[in-house]
């Protein structure tokens, strides 16, 4: 029983114009329903790689398949039905006079019926918590709110795969968590998620798999726990595991596993350990 790959990248190399390659010989696959974090230092090539998933970049050599179809043979506007992309800067896309119209833009491009458009717009605005702003002029909202308009406009398209390029930059902690909770829900509903971020605690909390990029190469690809348990590798791309994982690692000698991801998890381990110790002493 072979699981069909949603995105399959084969020996992808890419360079801008005639410059040095920005991505070098990258290969990986994602299955349906995965939640992947793409991390790496500034300029590692994360955005460049992600733009291959919806055809905005075409490989200089190698192949990218979406649902088994080679992207070179498809237009970006066609691929947009399969892969949604939330950009770093929402101001590159907003041009309508109300939030609701902005969200509906993609749906009208998909030529959906009017009722369907209205329903999906309402649902997407509800999901990002902007329902009461549906008639507001987008530029009267804060940058963080505009970021959520951009997110809603992609949500509404209900693509199977959703790519988010640093969706939480410039958001306060509460809004970051809100956005990531939306992402988690999408993932639970079966969407494949790929998100780019510099916030390791978000990775620990929300991703199941991590792709670490360093100067255009994949440094590590695997389970969040196993990647964070090897800080030497992360260091090469100037990343550090979340503090709680570091703490667990330092405590490691006292039989705490080095791949702890959450505060709660460590707390429970500590409590358990204490009770075991007490158990053995008495």
């Amino acid at each position: 029983m072979q699981r069909k790959a949603r995105i399959k990248v084969e020996k992808l190399t890419y360079h801008y114009g005639s410059g040095q390659p920005v991505l070098k010989n990258i290969s990986f696959e994602t299955g349906k329903g995965e939640c992947i974090a793409l991390i790496g230092q500034n300029g590692a090539g994360k955005t460049t790689l992600a733009k291959h998933f919806n055809g905005l970049h075409r490989p200089s050599s190698g192949k990218v398949y979406i649902d088994g179809i080679d992207t070179t043979s498809m237009k970006v506007s066609e691929l947009a039905r399969k892969v949604g992309f939330v950009f770093q800067n929402p101001d590159h896309q907003i041009f309508h006079d109300t939030v609701a119209r902005e969200v509906a833009f993609g749906l009208r491009n998909l030529r959906l019926s009017r009722r369907e458009i209205e329903e999906r717009t309402a649902a997407a605005l509800e999901a990002v918590g902007l329902t009461e702003h549906c008639r507001t002029y987008p530029f009267n909202l804060s940058k963080g709110q505009r970021q959520r308009i951009a997110l809603a406009s992609v949500l509404a398209m209900q693509t199977e795969t959703i790519v988010l390029d640093e969706p939480t930059t410039g958001q306060d902690f509460r809004e970051s968590v809100q956005i990531m909770e939306i992402v988690r829900k999408l993932n639970e509903n079966g969407h494949t998620i790929i998100f780019i971020t510099h916030d390791m605690s978000l990775v620990a909390r929300y991703a199941r798999r991590v792709l670490v990029l360093c100067r255009g190469e994949i440094l590590a690809d695997g389970d969040v726990r196993s990647v964070f348990a090897a800080p030497e590798i992360l260091k090469k791309t100037y990343l550090r595991p979340p503090q709680i994982t570091n703490l667990a690692r330092c405590l490691g000698r006292h039989s705490i596993p080095p791949d702890v991801l959450g505060v709660r998890e460590l707390y429970e381990l500590l409590v358990k350990m204490r009770s075991e110790k007490i158990g053995c002493c008495s």
């Binding site: 733009k51 919806n54 905005l56 237009k75 970006v76 506007s77 066609e78 947009a80 039905r81 949604g84 992309f85 950009f87 590159h92 896309q93 833009f105 993609g106 491009n109 998909l110 406009s153 992609v154 398209m157």
Partner: peptide, 10 residues
Amino acid sequence: SEAQQARAYA
């Protein structure tokens, strides 16, 4: 134009 294309605009 990339951002709009990504929303199925052609």
